[in-house]
Design a binder for these strands. Sequence first.
DNA 1: AGAATACCAAGCGATTTAGTTGGAATTAAA
DNA 2: TTTAATTCCAACTAAATCGCTTGGTATTCT
Lengths: 143, 143
Amino acid sequence: MRLSTRGRYGLKAMFQLALHYGEGPIPLNTIASEHDLSENYLEQLVSALRKAGLLNSVRGAQGGYMLAKDPKDITVGNILRVLEGDIAPADCVIDDTSGCDKEEGCVTKLVWMRIRDSINEVIDSISLQDMVDEQNKLLNNKA
Amino acid sequence: MRLSTRGRYGLKAMFQLALHYGEGPIPLNTIASEHDLSENYLEQLVSALRKAGLLNSVRGAQGGYMLAKDPKDITVGNILRVLEGDIAPADCVIDDTSGCDKEEGCVTKLVWMRIRDSINEVIDSISLQDMVDEQNKLLNNKA
DNA sequence: AGAATACCAAGCGATTTAGTTGGAATTAAA
DNA sequence: TTTAATTCCAACTAAATCGCTTGGTATTCT
């Protein structure tokens, strides 16, 4: 039940971009070296996030990436779904079109649904802005 | 973020044993064929559950498996942890001894913790007895 | 004795993961 | 106008994990 590195690296990258929201494009190598990640690998993740409309890019020297929307309008759920697909503990509860045969009266399915819903509730309720605020709170407590 | 077949098959098997709690040992092939699973594979899962103290076994002809405790005293969490290990979206939040370097003030870690906690809350709150009750409710509604 | 079971350990093909490689296109700066 | 910095893209690959299978031994009821 672990997330893959796609979701984990991706959220870190998006969070860092949120910290610098409004400061113009930030190049990938900055983000990659800061978190000690492969720049080429990160590129794949960022590419998906751009195609999903969560990031904008500026090509060429002095280019880079920036959030496509305000951090308060991007949730952890938005990011994870782009990188990991729908979050669900079993295929039969991904959406309403999926499901197995016996279906009706499958009690284990109810369990998977409850797990799914509780995860989604958490990831959809946390925005990048929430994370930035949390970060500032942590820094203030230290100072 | 899917559970593996270990967790999914294992819960199904345990649920079936809960439906027949108190009726003596049930052989593996019964469970396997009922759910269309490989008996040999299921054997591995059941073996782990037995070693973890959730199942008892009776060897020899007319033998089989049965729950080691009352269904109300076995939770979905008990079962999934035996078969899948600790449930957490990232390694750094498995327990208190794990974690990365930067650690202090890692906001993404807080996100993983909230996901972890919400999953655990669900799986620890559902017992096999709850599932049996749910099953009966479904059957009554149909009748 | 024979059949029905649990128990055990090793192997194994397919799939997924976590990247790497090698480039082409674009743009700012020198 | 060249050069360096960057995004963009597609294909490849080593390693790990998953989902079993195989082949046996031990035990117990009939």
